[in-house]
Simulated assay, not measured.
Amino acid sequence: MMKTVKGVIARSKNAPVELVEIDVPEPIEGEARVKILACGVCHTDLHYRGGGIGDEYPYLLGHEAAGIVEAVGPGVTEVEVGDTVILNWRAVCGECRACKRGRPWYCFATKNATQKMTLHESGEELSPALGIGAFIEYTLVAAGQCTKVDPKTRPAAAGLLGCGLMAGIGAAMNTGEVTYGDSVAIIGCGGVGAAAIAGAKLAGATKIIAVDIDDRKLETAIELGATHRVNSKQDDAVEKIRELTDGFGADVVIDAVGRPETWKQAFYARDLAGRVVLVGVPTPEMELTVPLLDVFGRGGSLKSSWYGDCLPERDFPMLIDLYEQGRLPLDAFVSEEIKIDQVEAAFEKMGAGEVLRSVVVMEEK
Rank of each mutant, 00 (worst) to 15 (best):
V8I: 04
S12G: 14
S12E: 14
N14C: 12
E18R: 07
D23K: 00
V24Y: 01
V24D: 10
P25Q: 06
E26N: 11
I28Y: 01
G30H: 05
E31W: 12
R33D: 13
K35T: 12
I36V: 10
I36N: 06
V41D: 00
C42F: 13
H43Y: 05
R49N: 13
I53D: 07
G54R: 01
D55Y: 09
Y57S: 05
P58E: 01
G62C: 15
A66T: 11
P74S: 09
G75R: 06
E78I: 15
E80M: 14
D83M: 13
T84F: 15
I86W: 11
R90S: 09
G94N: 13
R97P: 02
R97K: 14
R103P: 02
W105A: 15
C107G: 04
C107R: 04
A109F: 09
T114Y: 15
T114D: 11
K116C: 11
K116S: 15
L119C: 03
H120Y: 01
E121F: 08
S122W: 02
G123S: 03
P128G: 05
A134D: 05
E137S: 00
Y138E: 06
T139K: 04
L140Y: 03
G144D: 07
Q145W: 07
Q145A: 10
C146M: 05
C146D: 00
T147K: 10
T153C: 10
T153G: 02
R154I: 00
R154K: 14
L161V: 06
L161W: 00
C163R: 15
C163T: 15
M166I: 12
A167N: 06
A185D: 11
A185L: 07
V192K: 03
G193Y: 00
I197W: 09
A198N: 15
A198G: 15
G199D: 09
G199F: 05
G199S: 11
G199I: 03
I208P: 05
I208S: 01
I209T: 13
A210G: 15
A210S: 15
A210N: 09
R216N: 12
K217V: 13
K217Y: 06
T220A: 10
G225C: 08
T227K: 10
S232M: 13
S232F: 13
K233R: 14
D235I: 12
R242F: 00
R242D: 05
E243S: 11
E243F: 11
L244I: 01
D246Y: 07
V253Q: 03
D255P: 05
V257K: 14
R259W: 04
Q265I: 09
L272W: 08
A273H: 10
V276I: 01
G280E: 14
P284A: 12
M286G: 06
E287W: 00
E287T: 13
L288G: 00
T289W: 07
T289D: 15
L292Q: 08
L293D: 07
L293M: 10
D294L: 04
F296H: 08
S301C: 07
S304E: 07
W306C: 09
L311R: 10
D315P: 04
D315F: 08
P317F: 04
M318W: 04
L319D: 03
L319W: 12
I320V: 13
E324T: 05
L328Y: 12
L328H: 09
F333K: 00
F333Y: 13
E336D: 09
E337H: 03
I340M: 14
E344Y: 08
E344K: 05
A345H: 14
A346I: 11
A346R: 08
E348N: 09
K349F: 00
G353K: 03
V359E: 08
